[in-house]
Amino acid sequence: MLKIENLHVKLEEEDKQILKGVDLTVEAGTVHAIMGPNGSGKSTLSYVLSGRDGYEVTDGTAMLDDTDLLALEPEERAAAGLFLAFQYPVEIPGVGNMTFLRTAVNAQRKARGQEEMSSTEFLKTIRAKAAELNIDADMLKRPVNVGFSGGEKKRNEILQMAMLEPRMCILDETDSGLDVDAMRLVADGVNALRGEGRGFLVITHYQRLLDHIAPDFVHIMADGRIVKSGGPELALEVEKNGYADILSEVA
């Protein structure tokens, strides 16, 4: 489903290479986890896939099925089914969370040639999904992420994912800042969407999230490359021994 080949990315403004040949394939219906030291390029990979400015792809490709992601605008990538749950969700004063979500849902539907969701249907859906994530009505009314706690922001990301029902979901450290109960809610949210031909790329530092969202594959990223891939046991190894062994082994 998502096929990244030899992806090289540098900063647009600086002569700094961040991704140095990433190869990664996520098949439909599977969950892949990416771990790796701080600054290794995990967020950069997610930004580049979702179309953030400031990066220049110097080599390589990223395909979502038959779609060349790198040729599309961010909104087109979203309409094609890509979703990124941000490591640092953005606060947008003055834009109501509900307005934002309705606009997003309908924009994607429109881009796919589908009919817009009626406001009653939208309300019904969002209330149900918000309740599952323990997001109260007040949070829906407030401006996007403004004044939300760290954990509330992360849950709000998952609410957006649940509403948009993307095919390919990238979660960038969605677990950081979550309390134990919230972690379970988020994991349930992810697991509810699992299967049905969806792919997941879960970026995390901790095994804890992976206890709830059992990954099919685990990759280790270091210095802009995937240096090791394996099964769930790889995450346990990192949890136990850190990265030193793995990095010296591949060096």
Binding site: S50, G51, R52, D53, E73, P74, E75, R77, A78, A79, L84, F86, P89, V90, I92, V95, F100, T103, A104, A107, Q108, A111, Q160, L164
Partner: peptide, 8 residues
């Protein structure tokens, strides 16, 4: 960018 990444 955040808004656009949601398809707007």
């Amino acid at each position: 960018y955040y808004l656009r990444s949601r398809g707007i």
